Simulated scan of single mutants.
Amino acid sequence: MRDQVERTRDELGRTVEALAAKTDIKAQAAEKAAAVKDRAAEKAALVSDQIREKAGDAAQLVKDKAPELLVERADRAATAARANRTPLLLAGAAVVVLLLVRRSRGRRR
């Protein structure tokens, strides 16, 4: 009889826990949000990999089709841009500021 009572208590405890889990909406929402976040991260990684692959393929195609002189000049320009990154960024920022100032003056009229 005691064994049966103990088994019944265990079953009742599990049943109560299951019912409590079903009524815990916050926990269910958090679980679903985590699952959606995981799926989104996986999909983003997959898409990112696909984009990198396509970009690499496109770059290789352009490199194969472009004349050698053009490829050499583009490489030199990229190397120079990397070496002079700060002045280029400052120049770009100045152009953006000038465009914004010009645009704001145009709206005032």
Score class of each variant (00 low, 15 high):
Pro87Met: 08
Asp57Gln: 13
Asp38Phe: 07
Leu100Lys: 06
Val71Leu: 12
Leu46Arg: 15
Pro67His: 13
Ala58Gln: 08
Arg9His: 10
Leu12Thr: 07
Ala91Ser: 11
Glu31Arg: 01
Val36Arg: 06
Pro67Gln: 09
Val101Leu: 14
Ala93Arg: 01
Lys32Arg: 15
Thr8Tyr: 05
Leu46Asp: 15
Glu11Met: 06
Ala33Ile: 02
Arg102Phe: 10
Leu46Ile: 10
Thr86Cys: 06
Thr23Arg: 05
Ala93Trp: 00
Leu69Pro: 02
Leu69Lys: 13
Leu46Glu: 15
Val16Pro: 01
Val36Met: 10
Gln28Ala: 12
Leu69Asp: 13
Ala33Ser: 07
Gln60Ala: 14
Leu69Ser: 11
Ala35Glu: 14
Ala33Met: 02
Arg52Glu: 15
Arg103Trp: 12
Gly92Met: 12
Pro87Ser: 01
Ala18Trp: 02
Asp57Gly: 11
Ala80Trp: 02
Lys26Leu: 00
Glu11Cys: 01
Ala81Ile: 08
Lys43Ala: 15
Asp24Cys: 00
Leu19Gly: 04
Ala74Arg: 05
Arg108Ser: 12
Arg52Ala: 13
Glu68Arg: 09
Thr79Glu: 15
Ala78Gln: 03
Ala58Met: 13
Lys43Glu: 14
Thr15Lys: 09
Ser104Tyr: 10
Val62Lys: 13
Val101Ser: 07
Leu88His: 02
Glu31Cys: 00
Arg52Cys: 05
Thr79Pro: 00
Ala83Lys: 14
Ile25Asp: 04
Ile25His: 04
Val95His: 01
Val97Ala: 13
Val97Asn: 03
Glu11Asp: 11
Arg73His: 10
Arg108Thr: 05
Arg2Gln: 09
Ser104Cys: 07
Glu68Phe: 06
Leu98Val: 13
Asp3Val: 04
Leu70Tyr: 08
Ile25Arg: 05
Ala59Asn: 11
Glu6Tyr: 06
Gln28Arg: 00
Arg76Lys: 11
Gly56Asn: 03
Gly92Trp: 10
Val101Met: 06
Ala59Phe: 06
Thr23Ser: 09
Lys26Trp: 00
Ala29Ser: 02
Gly106Thr: 08
Gly56Cys: 01
Arg2His: 07
Ala74Asn: 07
Leu61Val: 09
Gly56Thr: 01
Asp10Pro: 01
Asn84Lys: 11
Ile51Trp: 05
Ala33Gln: 02
Arg76Pro: 00
Leu100Val: 09
Ile51Asp: 07
Ala20Tyr: 03
Met1Pro: 09
Ala59Gly: 11
Leu69Glu: 13
Glu72Gln: 14
Thr15His: 06
Arg102Ala: 12
Glu42Leu: 15
Arg102Ser: 15
Lys54Tyr: 03
Leu19Ala: 10
Thr15Ile: 05
Met1Phe: 08
Ala30His: 00
Ala83Met: 08
Lys65Asn: 12
Leu46Gly: 12
Asp24Tyr: 00
Leu90Val: 06
Ala29Met: 12
Asp10Cys: 08
Ala44Arg: 06
Arg82Cys: 05
Ala21His: 01
Lys32Cys: 04
Ala45Cys: 03
Gln50Met: 15
Thr86Glu: 15
Ala66Glu: 08
Leu89Met: 14
Glu6Pro: 03
Arg103Ser: 13
Leu98Trp: 07
Gly13His: 09
Ala91Lys: 02
Ala33Tyr: 01
Thr15Phe: 08
Arg73Ile: 09
Gln50Glu: 15
Arg9Ser: 10
Ala29Trp: 04
Asp3Glu: 09
Asp3His: 05
Met1Ala: 12
Ser104Trp: 11
Leu98Pro: 01
Thr8Arg: 09
Leu89Asn: 10
Leu70Val: 08
Asp3Cys: 04
Ala41His: 07
